[in-house]
Amino acid sequence: MLWILLTIIGIFVLHYTTFGRKLYAIGGNPQSAYLSGIEVNRYIIAAYVICGAMSALAGVVLTSWLTVAQPTAGKGIELDAIAAVVLGGTSLFGGIGGVGGTFIGVLLLSIITNIFNLLGLSSYYQSIFMGIIIVLALVLNRFVVKKSD
């Protein structure tokens, strides 16, 4: 429930506030955003503060779910996070994407991971598959960006 609530808040902030529009502008081209009068460093710091707060919240939720503060509990989740974001349509080069697409990417990745677990596939092969997803999404993203130029 918390995940859905934070997703809705993120979608609202990015699409319907000037803060979100300025973040998209900075992600697309920081120099152009600066020349447009946006205080780029201030918004970048704000984005990092929000990311840090969300990471802390995720740590608290994970700790409460595991009922123990395991320091290595999140080891290896970075690849899953990147794969979900890229699968959701967010460009790693900036300015394109959003929270809604990432939400869909997480759902798809969860389904794929669940299927792999049901098939008894090793986590080693699951990591390879996540890497392949990231590479394919990057290649596809580059193709789409070049085609639109």
Rank of each mutant, 00 (worst) to 15 (best):
Y48F: 08
V49G: 06
V49C: 09
I50N: 06
G52E: 14
A53L: 15
A53S: 11
M54Q: 07
S55P: 08
A56H: 05
A56I: 05
A56T: 15
A56W: 00
G59T: 09
G59D: 13
V60Q: 03
V61R: 00
L62V: 11
L62H: 03
T63A: 14
T63F: 06
T63N: 12
S64E: 14
W65F: 10
W65A: 14
W65V: 13
L66Q: 14
L66N: 11
T67D: 15
T67N: 12
V68E: 10
V68H: 09
V68D: 12
A69R: 02
Q70S: 12
A73E: 09
G74C: 10
K75E: 15
G76C: 11
I77S: 10
E78C: 08
L79Y: 07
L79P: 08
D80R: 06
A81F: 01
I82Q: 13
A83I: 07
A83Y: 01
V86N: 02
V86E: 02
L87G: 03
G88P: 02
G89E: 05
T90D: 05
S91D: 12
L92D: 08
F93V: 10
G94Q: 00
G98A: 13
G98T: 13
V99R: 02
V99H: 03
T102K: 01
F103D: 11
F103N: 11
I104E: 13
I104K: 03
G105C: 07
G105Y: 04
L107K: 06
L107V: 15
L108V: 14
S110Q: 14
S110L: 09
T113F: 00
N114W: 04
N114M: 13
F116G: 08
L118I: 11
G120V: 11
Y124I: 15
Y125C: 12
Q126P: 03
S127D: 15
F129M: 13
M130I: 01
I132E: 09
I134V: 15
V135S: 10
A137E: 03
A137G: 13
L138E: 10
L138G: 13
V139Y: 02
V139H: 01
L140V: 09
R142C: 06
R142M: 08
